[in-house]
Structure formats: C-alpha cells, structure tokens
Design a protein around this nucleic acid. Structure first.
Length: 287
DNA sequence: CTTCTTGTTACTGA
DNA sequence: ATCAGTAACAAGAA
C-alpha cells in the first residue's frame, strides 16, 4: 500500500515526466473517483498544465498553471496507482504490474489524463478507495496544516517530535499511524519502526523514557530515508509511475514475517492486532 | 464458504 | 477532551 516512500517515489517519477504538458483531455471511467462536481473538474483540467508536484503525507498535490482552483489532489489510499508509461515495449512485452493486467488501460483504470504529446497518465485503483479532487489555495493550506510532522523535512526535529509525543498517552503504533501526529507512516513502516526502535507496538507512549522516544524518532528517519532510497516497498500491488515494483521489500525485518525467525535474535516473529491493524513484532528484541 | 488485507473517515461509547 | 473500537468503502487472495 502506498505509504510515504511509495508516494514520494511516484511524485519524483511523475515530476520528471508530466510537467508543462498541455492536458488535451481527461477520461473519467468511474465518476465517484472524482470528488466534487465532475463538469467543474473537467473544465479546470482540460487545457491546463501541471507546473509542479508536491506531497504532504500520502497526498499528492499537482500544481495547476491556471488558477483558481490552483491544485489537483490525488490520494491513492490502498491500491491506487499512477502510471505513466515511458517505454512502450515495457507494455507490449507484458510487463507485470503487480497484481494487475499489463494492458493499459485495464479494468482498474478509472481516470486518464491525455497530454498534448499523445502520452497518457493512468489512474488505476483495484479497490476504488482512491480519489482526486480540486482544491483552492485556502483549501490546500487548511489540509496541509491538518497533518503532523513530515519525516525527511528540516522541521522533523527531535525537539518537535518530543513535544508531540509527550502530549499523548496511547499505544505507540496507534500514535505512529495517526497522520495528525506523524505524516506518512502506514502499517508496514509502523511495524518496521517499532522493531528498529526496540519498542513493542502496544506499549503506551506515556510509559516511554526519553531514550526510547529518541529511538523511535531515529528509526522513523532511518527507515523512511532507506525506503525512499530503494523506491518503496511492493508487498502486494504497489507500482511506481513506470509500473515497476519497489525494492525495499527485501529489507523488511518484521512486516509479513509472522512465524518466521527474527533476523536479529532468532525468536519467532509474532502477529497480533494493534490499533485494528495486523501487527508484527519480535517478543525478545522489542520491549 | 470464511477470513484477512489496509488508508481514511464517521460514528459510538467509555 | 481524548481515545479505543468498529463499520464502511471494495475486491481479491488464501
């Protein structure tokens, strides 16, 4: 599922490919994937251009040349993909988009942006939870401000982290997954962060000492930067803008490894439910 | 057939 | 106010 590193990988890929191309047309195959008025959406997009792509948490922000609305937001939720084929032979050769048919468009393609140079950006979503939405400058700033600390930015300091975590008393994993606390972590990286920090996911944040809090802070920084470096994790159906899988899956230490041996101590990795999510942990390395 | 998968929001109840 | 739990969304894998 696309979490921060996967969304960032897509952002970087698209940034190098779709900016400043006139959008000749947009095809909406599944209207509910467009939030708000459909004809207003089409009117705002057709003839427009993307001038920049930014990201906040797992939300992609496409900056439009014509304003207002100035922005197009895209959230991929659990199974959304944004694919911009750059090498036709990749598709002709049946490149396996994870869990999907290799043809584009396919049955999961719900939105297409057709550019002036005949290229197309495909928005696929198996489970149809993803969405796109226009936003004005005011709406965007309101949304951006509602998110928590953004790992990988200069504002993600130990001091800011400590100030936030000190205010809360709740299970660590639940806190990590809360987008208003830390922006961008999802189920996979939350488990990985807890292992690297040596903290049990169901530990209450109120029981952690400063050293343990700092271990969490450092683990978030390490894991997010490593995962971005390896272009994200493909566990099921994540694919980047070219339809390629992420390379971080082979570095996962606990997620998806229930009943297997801990890579550090050899204990059996346990699986339970924390914050309503499947949660993996090492009973020895984590306390 | 059942259960599990998960990002986010809405809702309920403690 | 804070937070836990659950349902909802939807489709597929096991």
């Amino acid at each position: 599922m696309p979490e921060l590193p996967e969304v960032e990988t897509i952002r970087r890929g698209l940034e190098n490919n779709v900016l400043f191309k006139r959008i000749e047309n947009v095809t909406v195959g599944l209207p509910k994937i467009v939030r708000g008025d459909l004809s207003q959406f089409q009117a705002a997009i057709i003839g427009n251009q993307f001038t920049n792509i930014s990201r906040r948490a797992k939300l992609l922000i496409f900056h439009l040349k014509k304003s207002e609305p100035q922005y197009l937001l895209i959230h991929l939720k659990m199974t959304g993909q944004l694919i911009y084929p750059t090498d036709q032979t990749l598709i002709a050769g049946g490149h396996p988009y994870p869990d999907f048919k290799s043809e584009l468009p396919n049955k999961y393609t719900h939105l297409m942006f057709h550019f002036q140079d005949q290229s197309t950006l495909f928005f696929n979503d198996l489970r149809q939870f993803g969405y796109t939405q226009l936003a004005t400058t005011d709406q965007l700033s309101q949304l951006v401000n509602s998110y928590g600390l953004e790992p990988g930015t200069p504002s993600f300091t130990w001091q800011a982290f400590k100030e936030k975590i000190d205010l809360r008393k709740r299970p660590v994993k639940s806190w990590l997954l809360d987008q208003q606390e830390i922006a961008g972590l999802g189920n996979i990286y939350a488990d990985e962060v807890c292992l690297q920090a040596g903290i049990l996911p169901n530990r209450n944040t109120g029981t952690l000492n400063d050293s343990q809090k700092h271990a969490l802070y450092q683990a978030i920084k390490n894991i997010i930067s490593q995962a971005i470096k390896h272009r994200g994790t493909t566990f099921r159906n994540y694919a980047d803008h070219e339809g390629k899988k992420g390379g971080y899956a082979k570095f996962l230490q606990v997620y998806g490894r229930a009943e297997e041996k801990c890579l550090q101590c050899g204990s059996i990795i346990q699986k339970t439910k924390v914050a309503g999510r499947g949660t993996h942990y090492c009973p020895v390395c984590q306390q």
